[in-house]
Design a protein around this nucleic acid. Structure first.
Ligand SMILES: [Mg+2]
Length: 220
DNA sequence: GCGACAG
DNA sequence: ATCTTGTCGC
């Protein structure tokens, strides 16, 4: 798919932070999508040993979840891991992969935060804006904010608050398991993000990102 | 200064 | 993310 020209990725800390604060204003926080027939799962892994970053995007039919397309790309690690600036480390490869994608997804799941971010602009939100696609952030851990533990039943959730604002939800995607931190990426409301995430969860990690992650495990 | 801290 | 054996539980 075609991706519009945008800002540089090699920004210094202060510049990156300022960019996030600015671009967050452009996010669409309500439902702005049509029929969801194809969804995508994205994941990235870093092999420090070889100084390379590997990424994969898997397209699935929805709700069947049959794999339709798989594309991956490799790049050199060009940015350190800094909490809050993960996009500058993983974004470049992800963008490169979407360039090769033929089946444009109607919704994309990311392994990381979206709006649940200090500047309300995590990986899922940033990529959603760049790709101009509906996105959802599904993180395995919390980055910021406070929440009360949801009940142990699959499907229950509690909102994550920060600075008096709801920025995401701690969603129980599996009984008795640690919750998944769901947040708006772009063009999908929080309640819909929760609904979609639950609809693709067979285990703790939602299928799109779980399968993308497993795929990378099998790559040398 | 101290604690928190996506992947 | 990566390192890395065993161990607990269904
Ligand atoms: Mg990941």
């Amino acid at each position: 798919m075609q991706i519009k020209e945008h800002h540089r990725w090699d920004l210094k800390y202060e510049e990156a932070v300022a960019l996030q604060t600015e671009l967050s204003k452009k996010l669409i926080l309500n439902d702005s999508f049509g029929a969801i027939e194809k969804i995508a799962g994205v994941d990235v892994k870093c092999v420090k040993e070889r100084n390379e970053v590997l990424g994969v995007v898997i397209i699935f039919s929805y709700p069947e979840l049959n794999i339709i397309e798989i594309k991956m790309a490799k790049d050199v690690i060009s940015y350190p891991y800094i909490p809050g600036l993960l996009t500058f480390r993983e974004g470049p490869v992800v963008e490169q992969i979407f360039t090769q994608i033929k089946n444009i997804p109607d919704l994309v799941f990311f392994d990381g935060q979206g709006y649940c971010h200090p500047r309300r602009f995590g990986l899922a939100s940033h990529m959603g804006l760049i790709l101009n696609l509906p996105t959802i952030g599904c993180a395995k851990n919390k980055l910021c904010g406070n929440y009360k533990e949801p009940s142990q039943t699959k499907g229950s959730y509690s909102y994550i608050f920060d600075d008096g604002e709801i920025i995401g939800a701690a969603l129980r995607t599996k009984n008795e398991a640690k919750p998944i931190f769901v947040s708006i990426g772009h063009k999908v409301s929080l309640i819909s993000a929760i609904k979609f995430t639950l609809s693709v969860s067979k285990f703790r990690i939602p299928e799109p990102t779980r399968i993308a992650h497993n795929y990378l495990e099998g790559i040398v």
